[in-house]
Simulated assay, not measured.
Amino acid sequence: MPVNAGPEFMEAELEYQRATTPEERLLGLKKMLKTAPKHKGSEKLLAEIKKKIAKILEQQERVKQIAKRAGRASAGIKKEGAARVCIIGATNTGKSSLLAKITNSKARISEYPYTTTEPEIGVLDYIGIKVQVVEIPAIIQDFIETDSGSYFVSLMKESSLLIVLYRNEEERKLVRSELRKMRLSVPTIELSQQEAKERSQDVPWKIWKNLGLIKVYTKQPRKPKEFPPVSLGKGATIRDLATKIHKDFVQKFKHARVFGSSVKFPGQQVGLGHVLADDDVVELYTKD
């Protein structure tokens, strides 16, 4: 007997197929279950929908348990610093080693596969700018469908950059394929295991250049620039800098003097709309 699904079911099925998160897939499945025909010929379809719903609910419960064991809230790891970067790759590609080299992490490093079963976290200090770096457990086939896949994907989705480590072309293609399934719109850097190992000192610079951020220093007249610098998005203005330092700066703003590549000469006087560049040094002046 044919299913003979109506337009409401077809629309719900399309919503499910376009979903990019476990929550969206669950919502789509529930709509499919609600709008699916209820007769002898649809029993198999209904059973499949219920099975998929049960699997997502089970995955969500496992995510909560993982977060609980790690001493974090079920919502996941709190995003800290100027940005979050995730290191991903197949097993034994050197993810833990790279994390340890570029951050303060004490991640367990082993030659045995699948040593990392939960996210490892470190902090990269790039010239005073703090960047959170998270190592994601090994990427495998149908990663998002694994017990904790949706939890790990959510961490990646909230990141500003992904670093993909691989040993060979097969591993690189695997990760690329899995990223397409996850439908992530996150910038990616690909590094071979050998490159990451031999030139790990260059990785922090590569991370910074791909984060879409700039660092700006502030100073008082006739004094050295202050440290650490302030991180801002590319295209940020004096207004953005003043707001980040203190909300009152914008209201009391008089003018600013800038030293760096964004001005024609050192100490040029500018207004709130002036666009800053990386490594600019700024003096802010306020009204009396």
Rank of each mutant, 00 (worst) to 15 (best):
M1P: 10
A5M: 02
P7H: 12
F9I: 01
F9S: 01
A12W: 04
E13Y: 14
E13P: 00
R18Y: 04
T21N: 04
P22D: 04
P22I: 08
M32K: 09
P37C: 06
G41R: 03
S42Y: 13
S42C: 12
K44H: 11
I49R: 04
A54M: 07
K55S: 06
I56F: 12
Q59I: 06
I66K: 12
K68T: 12
G71F: 05
G71E: 09
R72Y: 07
A75C: 04
I77E: 01
G81P: 02
A83D: 05
R84T: 15
I87S: 09
K95N: 07
S97H: 08
L98Y: 04
L99I: 00
N104H: 03
R108Y: 11
S110R: 05
P113T: 08
T115N: 08
T117R: 15
I121L: 12
V123P: 00
V123T: 14
D125G: 11
V131R: 05
V134K: 08
A138R: 11
I139S: 05
Q141H: 13
E145C: 03
D147K: 14
S148E: 13
Y151I: 06
K157A: 14
K157Q: 13
S159C: 10
L161D: 07
L161I: 09
N168F: 07
N168A: 09
E171K: 06
K173Q: 15
K173R: 14
L174C: 02
R176V: 05
S177G: 10
K181D: 02
R183A: 15
V186T: 11
P187E: 07
P187T: 02
I189A: 06
I189N: 04
E190N: 10
E190A: 11
S192V: 06
Q194P: 00
E195S: 12
K197D: 10
R199P: 00
K206P: 00
K206Y: 01
K206D: 03
W208S: 05
L211A: 04
L213Y: 10
I214H: 10
I214G: 02
K215M: 08
K215Y: 01
V216D: 00
T218K: 08
K219V: 09
R222H: 14
R222G: 10
K223S: 15
K223E: 15
E226C: 08
V230N: 11
L232E: 08
K234W: 05
R239A: 15
T243V: 15
T243F: 15
I245W: 09
H246S: 11
D248E: 15
K252Q: 13
A256N: 04
F259C: 09
G260M: 10
G260P: 00
G260W: 04
V263G: 08
F265H: 13
F265L: 07
F265I: 03
Q268N: 07
Q268I: 01
L272I: 02
G273A: 13
D278E: 03
D280Q: 09
T286G: 07
D288M: 14
